[in-house]
Design a protein around this nucleic acid. Sequence first.
DNA 1: TCGATGGCTTGTA
DNA 2: CTACAAGCCATCG
Length: 189
Amino acid sequence: MTSFNKIIISNYKSNDLYYSVGVSSSTGKVVKISLSNPNKRKANAEIINSYPNFEFSNAYEDIAREISKIYEGKKTNLKLDMLELNVDKSNRDLPVKSSFQKDVLVETYKIPYGEVATYKSLAEKLKTRAYRAVGTVMANNPFPLIIPCHRVVKSDLTIGQYGGGPKMKREILKNEGVNLKGDKIIKTC
DNA sequence: TCGATGGCTTGTA
DNA sequence: CTACAAGCCATCG
């Protein structure tokens, strides 16, 4: 049972938003992403709370910068395989706690840029009616923006909730070119 | 182990 | 349009 001996935290700031990434020094995989406006300490605290054994370094600053590009609606080269998605109940340090959670996150990753899915449609792809549980996974998404939970909305196409607040969700979707009228997605054909 | 709690959905009024 | 109620089911304490 492997345990992370240390987490490396890198930061990047763009447009008054602080992006923090936590990377395991033993596996090189991202274990947590957090963003906060406008408080850098808060962004870091979210990672430190889960991983008290950490150090700061600019080693992964480029990843944090790439994440900021997603927010701004630009293309990035971020891949699923840089994320720690392994599930192992005997290892408390792993960010993904269950295979259900992993399945939802992977399915969310497949939502294309500029498009949206619903909590319901994700649940149905996983052959379950656990719509609310899908929402819970989104709420605890360790990899915001890379796993685009901002592209998951309610079945009536209203925007739904978001960790960073609904205004933030709206903003990211707008940056991706999604048509919004108030809090509702307007489908473009 | 079991009740409470959700970034939800559908139905009814 | 709003307001509940009941159902769903994975997770947490």
